[in-house]
Design a protein around this nucleic acid. Sequence first.
DNA 1: TATGAATGAGATTTCATTCAT
DNA 2: AATGAATGAAATCTCATTCAT
Lengths: 214, 214, 214, 214
Amino acid sequence: MKTPASAAANPSLRERLRVLTSRAILDAAEVVFATQGLQAARMEDVAARAGVAVGTLYNYFKDRQTLVTSLHAYRHQEVIELFEQCLAAGADRPFDALLLEVVRILLGHFDRHRAFFVVLMQSEAELGRREAMCARRQAILELRGCFERVVARGVAEGAMRADDAAIFPSALFALLQSAMMHAHFNEATTPAAEQAAALVRLFLDGARPRPAAG
Amino acid sequence: MKTPASAAANPSLRERLRVLTSRAILDAAEVVFATQGLQAARMEDVAARAGVAVGTLYNYFKDRQTLVTSLHAYRHQEVIELFEQCLAAGADRPFDALLLEVVRILLGHFDRHRAFFVVLMQSEAELGRREAMCARRQAILELRGCFERVVARGVAEGAMRADDAAIFPSALFALLQSAMMHAHFNEATTPAAEQAAALVRLFLDGARPRPAAG
Amino acid sequence: MKTPASAAANPSLRERLRVLTSRAILDAAEVVFATQGLQAARMEDVAARAGVAVGTLYNYFKDRQTLVTSLHAYRHQEVIELFEQCLAAGADRPFDALLLEVVRILLGHFDRHRAFFVVLMQSEAELGRREAMCARRQAILELRGCFERVVARGVAEGAMRADDAAIFPSALFALLQSAMMHAHFNEATTPAAEQAAALVRLFLDGARPRPAAG
Amino acid sequence: MKTPASAAANPSLRERLRVLTSRAILDAAEVVFATQGLQAARMEDVAARAGVAVGTLYNYFKDRQTLVTSLHAYRHQEVIELFEQCLAAGADRPFDALLLEVVRILLGHFDRHRAFFVVLMQSEAELGRREAMCARRQAILELRGCFERVVARGVAEGAMRADDAAIFPSALFALLQSAMMHAHFNEATTPAAEQAAALVRLFLDGARPRPAAG
DNA sequence: TATGAATGAGATTTCATTCAT
DNA sequence: AATGAATGAAATCTCATTCAT
């Protein structure tokens, strides 16, 4: 919004400013929603944090709902892109390594936006009920799709059982969540990413002790 | 003049009515909160559903917050009691069977109050932030304690690895949640309880195919 | 309400009980209104203090307004009776002594019910506006009448000027009030009655120093 | 972006409007509170009278209590300023004349805001009880201080006795009140200010007839 | 007659949204 | 395009009063 470099070119200065302001608002919204809670946060707080007037919020987002949805989409998109990159990059790696990498990357991302993701999860529970959130539902399904692709690949490679495969995607997702919640509750302790290996071990080999003859 | 017994030879009629009304309100609240969402639900709706006047709500619960908290406590208590009964009853069973039983019982309970538990989870995410919810936090810790005892017992019996045991309780909890969320999203499909066996298999033996020599 | 002595006679036991309960309620109301303020006090508090149920209040007083009014009347009546007794008893005394006696008696009564009289004054200010309070207005006019009689007598005896006599009654009343308010603000200090002599001196001879040749 | 001056070349227009609105609300509040009573008046009525929406009230005053307190402060301040001006202006006048002037000025002001001052007095009686009103108490003490200064000066000049001086300030204040109450009850009659001379006569020389040798 | 739970109108307060500047 | 004061619908909570027991 104040980058001096953007003064040189003028092709679509307006447009670039719009994007910057929009980002600034989304970033402010993330912090405010995460700090105060999705419902307790007031538009005025978001505006104050973003350094703009309330009215400006409405120049960029139709209404509160839209702002929340956009924020979700924004972060979700990042996760999905990360996910895709992992999958693409690890196309030729052994499945175990790929899975570990995916889990690590995702948890790393979660760690960076921990507070917001907690809020995001909170609102996911609402999804069954509200209609207006189909955009958000969409994003979630997309994320779910990523997990399903990972699982599908694991099964295809013979690295995972096919019989219970139906529950694996949501189970995997749930394990990631559990790591986050764990990190969230024991605030300021070890980041969730450090649990990546243990999670993958649990997911792939279970909690049962390995048979003696490893 | 103030002894409740002296009222009109109705030793505890009043008292019994109080309990009934209190229950009616809590039941109504569960439905309304689950249907409309924790925040969207209005006290008036709860009252209407319970068949009482708004004021009556406040004769039983100090304020909205207290109602929500009481509802949480009410359901949580049931879960914990179920849990305890399982643990007590299965004291001499093999660990695998015990775990399966526990998971099945819990998911069954979840199925019966599905909508509300989704709401409950939603609000659990808030816990890091609000202080006033220590009662609720207490309940959650208690539940967590139950899972820890199960895990501890599994480890003691040699049925579970000790190395990653730290993450097992929340992982187990998360897997249950995933089953619920799964059931919640695919509304009106198979109950979560049917996933019990698959979940336990995954938790104990992992997603990896069993070695050939089954 | 529980006086064992009243069990002996039965001529109008019911009636006597009614009076006792009525008194108990009025006494409780005085304390509660004085402690919590005329508006902040709740009927429930009055009932609790009186040791009866809320419903009982309404068996004795039509509504809140009536209770307040009755309380006013109750106390006012006492004041007026005191006043009358003084006037009657002092019929043959010199005016100065009579006035001093009246002031002393009234302030003494005020001291005994200080808190409530403060509340009472508070509500007197409302009088210009509310219609339903004509009963109260009546009582006040009656009290005013007492003061007017004292002044009239003073004038008749040549102990007071006739020219400004119109303002003397309310001035005298105001001086009494000032003594009470003074006592009220400097809580728990000397009782208002001790100011009686000074007040009368001020009222009769003014604040100006006496001419040297007394 | 936040400097008020940068808005739209309207350096202090906003600010001026704020002051005007604030005044409008206070003026409306005075009328409404005085007309309907301090407690009976509803915020909605104040808003309607001020010609703004309810919400606007809360943009200017945190809550009802604050509005009332601000109103008190607003009027009290005016009285005190009037008082100070009198005292300053009359520094070299004989005490009798000064006192008369003070009384006349104050009663004049009272006359102009009669209804509200009655309400104000009403609430003064509450002062002993509520703590949150320290601001108001402060104002009252300040006013009392003014009266004390007048009395001190009178005593110093030998125009008033020193022995009973302790009760003079509140007595003087009470006499003013009595004039107001008198005017209030005999609504729409002669203004209180006309009683100024009689009041001062009473206060300085008492109710007793002057000794023959005038 | 006493009781006290139920009632529900009504008051305060909040905050997403609008719109004149 | 940005601003921020104004708006007013809506939600929570209170408490005088009623009435079945």
